[in-house]
Design a protein around this nucleic acid. Structure first.
Length: 424
RNA sequence: AGAGAGAUGGCUGAGUGGUUGAAAGCGGCGGUCUUGAAAACCGUUGUAGCCUUACGGUUACCGGGGGUUCGAAUCCCUCUCUCUCUGCCA
């Protein structure tokens, strides 16, 4: 959620940033108007409330002295009615502002490259060896079927398209990958979390997923619980409405969960195998930190995600998303893409975002900043999230790049101690 | 799921219509004392909005929402959650 104060005090800046994102900025004019109205109502109501409080105290004293206070009571009855109507107006205006704020995205950082679409994203670095095969590479769906480790047809029978079924060594290598990632992150200072994967509406709102993306979420009807699209949601909500001490930051969590996305609006796109699925596995990294350190922490998170790929010897690249392509809650975002030899293209496997105070404002996650002279000030933390990483597209790259001419898969070195076998 | 009890500041816990933003204790912070520490003593100690250059003023907040009243932590309705007992269950 954006700060209404920023819109009040610096509307031109906000409008420019929204335009950079290809967003409609006319909403700011509307918000300024409603906000102005809101302040007017507050002022009027507060003058009356002050009067009511004062006179009510006087009435109390008069009653105690057995004096007649009927006149004052009659007068205050009128004042009270007036207050009620102002409060009613205020409620409506608050609701209107809230409604607009729910749909306004985070503002891009000044250093983010300007661009209209994904085509304008900037490639930062390409890593890992790109392999050359002296045979025709098989894609992951074919390999999965041949080796009987992935069964997309039966996954479809059980649930629908986009719900992969892992079997035998396929299930084992998936589990190995998750353990490898978690162990690596834990060794690098992240605390492991295994959170609930159904969350309530308040948690979804605090993480800025709902109402804006409600259509993309799976929702249970009788209880109004949402299947999480990412572990980011429950992990952020661990600290909803809490205030950290400064020395508790940065606070780093990692967590494995299943993730669920309806992918509404992308039917017919990348439907093959793992390329776009409704349920997938992901190890997520979350970092709560002081605002002045967040961009530095972001670079560290990219290193933490890359460590996984370097270990697996995957060919990957990092791109910085341009202003037109960064996600709703992020001020800056890097994507990590792995190379698919069979698809002959890059696949997004991770995304590291600095959401600054966009989520912490809605979630009310703050910390006591220590000022000079030992005084403290409560300030919003910055929240960063990064996948470290999602397994499905990573698995595409792993299966493809470790295949042999006769159709087997060599288990990557770092996973062997987790799988207990070396070849599939 | 049924019956009962409850939800107050960082914590424990008073408070059942009128100087209660809220007693008291603990904790935290600052100070006195001390070579240092502890103890003791003194002081201080919530969040947010609005007005103000500032000092400060003011409003709201006692689980959430609504209501009664001149006035609500206190009365009423409703929701959520916690605890105890019963039932069911991995």
């Amino acid at each position: 959620m954006l700060d209404i104060k920023l819109i009040r005090e610096n509307p031109e800046y906000v409008r420019k940033k929204l335009k950079d994102r290809n967003e409609d900025d006319s909403i700011i004019l509307k918000l300024q108007e409603i906000d102005g109205k809101r302040l007017e109502i507050i002022k009027k109501a507060e003058v009356l409330k002050e009067k009511r409080n004062k006179v009510s105290d006087e009435i109390g004293i008069m009653k105690r002295n057995k004096e007649n206070a009927d006149g004052k009571i009659a007068e205050m009855k009128k004042v009270s009615d007036e207050i009620k109507s102002y409060d009613e107006e205020l409620r409506k205006v608050d609701e209107e502002i809230e409604k607009e704020l729910y749909y306004l995205p985070a503002l891009p950082d000044d250093k983010v490259p300007f661009g209209k679409s994904a085509d304008d994203n900037v490639e930062k670095i390409v890593c890992g060896e790109k392999l050359h095969f002296d045979f025709k590479v098989k894609d992951h769906v074919e390999l999965g079927k041949m080796l009987d480790i992935l069964d997309f047809e039966r996954g479809t029978k059980i649930s629908g398209s986009g719900f992969p079924l892992y079997k035998g060594k396929g299930a084992t290598i998936e589990r190995a990958l998750i353990n490898y990632m978690l162990d690596t992150h834990i060794a690098n200072g992240y605390k492991e979390i295994l959170p609930p994967i159904l969350v309530n509406r308040a948690s979804m709102e605090a993480a800025e997923k709902v109402p804006k993306f409600e259509e993309d979420m799976y929702r249970t009807v009788p209880d109004d619980l949402f299947a999480i699209p990412t572990a980011e949601v429950p992990i952020i909500n661990i600290h909803r409405d809490e205030i950290f001490k400064q020395d508790e930051l940065p606070l780093k969590y990692c967590g494995f969960t299943n993730c669920f996305r309806r992918e509404a609006g992308s039917y017919g796109k990348d439907t093959k195998g793992f390329l776009r699925v409704h349920q997938f596995n992901k190890v997520e990294l979350i970092n709560f930190c002081q605002p002045e350190n967040s961009y530095e922490e972001m670079e560290k998170m990219v290193i933490d995600a890359r460590r996984i790929l370097d270990g697996l010897k995957v060919h990957y690249r990092i791109i910085e998303l341009c202003t037109g392509d960064i996600g709703f809650s992020a001020s800056k975002c890097y994507d990590i893409e792995v190379w698919s030899y069979a698809e002959d293209k890059w696949l997004e496997a991770s995304s590291v975002s600095n959401c600054t105070d966009f989520q912490s404002r809605r979630a009310k996650i703050r910390y006591k900043k220590i000022l000079e002279g030992g005084k403290t000030k409560t300030e919003l933390v910055h929240i960063l999230n990064g996948s470290g990483l999602a397994t499905s597209r990573l698995m595409v790259s792993i299966l493809e790049s470790n295949q042999t001419k006769d159709g087997h898969i060599v288990v990557p070195e770092v996973l062997k101690k987790y799988t207990g076998f070396e070849i599939i």
